[in-house]
Design a protein around this nucleic acid. Sequence first.
DNA 1: GAATTTTATTATGTATACGTCATTGGCTGA
DNA 2: TCAGCCAATGACGTATACATAATAAAATTC
Lengths: 238, 238
Amino acid sequence: MRQSEASRAGAGRAPVGAAQSPSQTQRALVALREMIVSNRLPPGSSYLESELAEMLDMSRTPVREAAVMLEAQGLVEIRPRRGVRILPLSTQDMTEIYEILTELEGLAAQQAAARKLSKKEIANVEGALNEMDAALATDDRDRWAAADKRFHDLLVAMSGNRRLQALVESYNDQVHRARMLTVHLRPSPTRSNSDHKALFEAIVAGDQKRARALHTAHRKEAMHLIIDLLQKHGFHQV
Amino acid sequence: MRQSEASRAGAGRAPVGAAQSPSQTQRALVALREMIVSNRLPPGSSYLESELAEMLDMSRTPVREAAVMLEAQGLVEIRPRRGVRILPLSTQDMTEIYEILTELEGLAAQQAAARKLSKKEIANVEGALNEMDAALATDDRDRWAAADKRFHDLLVAMSGNRRLQALVESYNDQVHRARMLTVHLRPSPTRSNSDHKALFEAIVAGDQKRARALHTAHRKEAMHLIIDLLQKHGFHQV
DNA sequence: GAATTTTATTATGTATACGTCATTGGCTGA
DNA sequence: TCAGCCAATGACGTATACATAATAAAATTC
């Protein structure tokens, strides 16, 4: 029946340098995370394990396993007999997360400044910066947000601390919805772009103190901007 | 057979104000984490899911679920067909974790200083400080380590940021083994105690900058101490 | 008519079943 | 003796089965 198709499709998909085998659990994890982050499973809504299993065309087992992982990441809550609930974030939650992110990314910026960056790393960051400028010129907010995310991801990767990278990614997932929401409500992020450039210069120059200070200030500002916007527009939860 | 005894025992145990229901998964999670951080399951060793299930007298399902959670926490690695492996930490790993911890606890100290602490909070911290002094007087290292941990846990709790608390706890679990190991190798932690007191004074005085700086310095020192000790004694992995 | 008890439904937690794939030991051939 | 192949064992991933507990619904009594 259904499962056999699905597993064959899954097994047969593996293209050229496929990672390992896309296990059902992995599929569920990726699919659910994507659906949550993209707001297709809206915050506050609940789903029975069996519903999700049917959605993803697999049995409850891998869905459950993925749900456990997502709960560990703070994206959902598993409530006995009431299904998997997509966690909404209050402004309080947002504050908690941004405080942590600010801190961790500040550390990343400092460590990145302490390193000797490769040509490729520099080129990648410059690519992201240019992309942001281009997006700004046409006021393409989604494109800008994507490039902004890329810039921050690259920066954290440059820290060389893998755990730091994973951690920041995880928390970014949690606030992604809110960020996407406010990116269309906020004023044009010209200031943000110049911040990024100054920060990058400090990193390349190896000025650790300055890199950290600039980044921390940048993030704090972004945090206040987002939280104020959410409150002004009456989103007490996202 | 076995399971029926076990489940009856589990269901029947729930004493007076029992949390929720001690599900098998919860039991497995708690038991495994305890065995790992206490070094009863030594780093580098591997266990088949079926072995662990037998150890804990339950089926593979809850063991697997708990293993997934522990993997998310970074304590184990699930290797297909090779069992659940207790992750050893290299000095590189220790460095990564301590860098993050230093940062997060520094933030916690700052935020604690920004708050008005309750009488109870202050009393608790003072209790831990006294306990450390007492332990120091008899050079009871295990007792000192327990009080030290309590001090740091209290401090993070005082930040008021729940996520920060959970995060720090999680990373502390990961380095717990190494800390226990070195606490017997290090010189008497008199310096540590005076550091703690100065830090606490800064927090009570509401001096955020100073609280953070003191804490960061304290943690950095501890990190170097531990890593140097491990290297000097030839532990390249723990 | 309302409240309470009883029954029925249903989702979950956990055990078990089962096919697949990897690894290991033996066997064959040189 | 050793390299390479093959078979067999076994662990895992995932599906399914099943008992339990909770909720919803229905029925009965005052």
